[in-house]
Write a protein that binds this DNA or RNA. Structure first.
Lengths: 110, 110
DNA sequence: ATCGTATATCGTAAATTTACGATGAATATA
DNA sequence: TATATTCATCGTAAATTTACGATATACGAT
């Protein structure tokens, strides 16, 4: 079962894992980089820049959105996507903390 | 198909996503934290500290190992796991770069 | 040589992910 | 109003992930 026993872990651990998971696909990394390159919101042209079908891109966008990393606003026919700076700050903080905790000490190992 | 069209993306993007994916489960986050808490290597007691079966923990360890984030050395009957400081440095660098690139500028959005 | 312990691997089941085409809903344009 | 465009969602298929128990392997201890 791909049931993740998330409830058996720390809230913090679950949150860290969820953010990491949201970044766990090259298409989503690429989407975030595309959004970052712009100083304005972006609509449909995301799909054109990726080697994936429109519906697939839409799915990845949904994943990023439900992780809170991007925002999407409807603007007429189009949907306007951009980064959610606030969540990205959190993400940055969480990852930094997690990773620096990993990298302190550890001398007499393997 | 869960076939990730990884070859269609940047090497850097694929690497970033792979690292993120390796961190994308609370059990793996927990394992890394357990390993970090020790200044010595750790063997079997990892399983005892997690709400998962031994075989499942072994699978997660394997995932972390093949991402290069931990090392495992056989020591008699037991296997001794510890963090791979070098990869963690890389990981830190990669994540920092990626995330700070996301968080620069972006004013006139949504 | 046998027994017990530690850990990896195998087999399996269920859920999830990734991907695509087709369809639907909403809006802009002719 | 009819048509075209944009994007989300549905249906579906295949691969992967997560999880477990059972088994295999390898070593240490008796």
């Amino acid at each position: 079962m791909a049931i993740t026993k998330a409830e058996l872990f720390d809230k913090k651990q679950v949150q860290t894992a969820e953010f990491a998971k949201a970044l766990g696909h090259p298409a989503r990394i690429a989407i975030l980089e595309i959004l970052a390159k712009r100083d304005t919101c972006i609509c449909g042209d995301i799909t054109e820049q990726l080697p994936l079908a429109q519906s697939t891109v839409s799915q990845h966008l949904k994943a990023l959105k439900s992780a809170g990393i991007i925002k999407g606003e409807i603007d007429g026919v189009r949907t306007c996507y951009c980064l959610d700076e606030e969540t990205i700050s959190d993400l940055q903080e969480i990852m930094k903390n997690f990773l620096t905790n990993l990298s302190t000490q550890h001398s007499n190992c393997c």
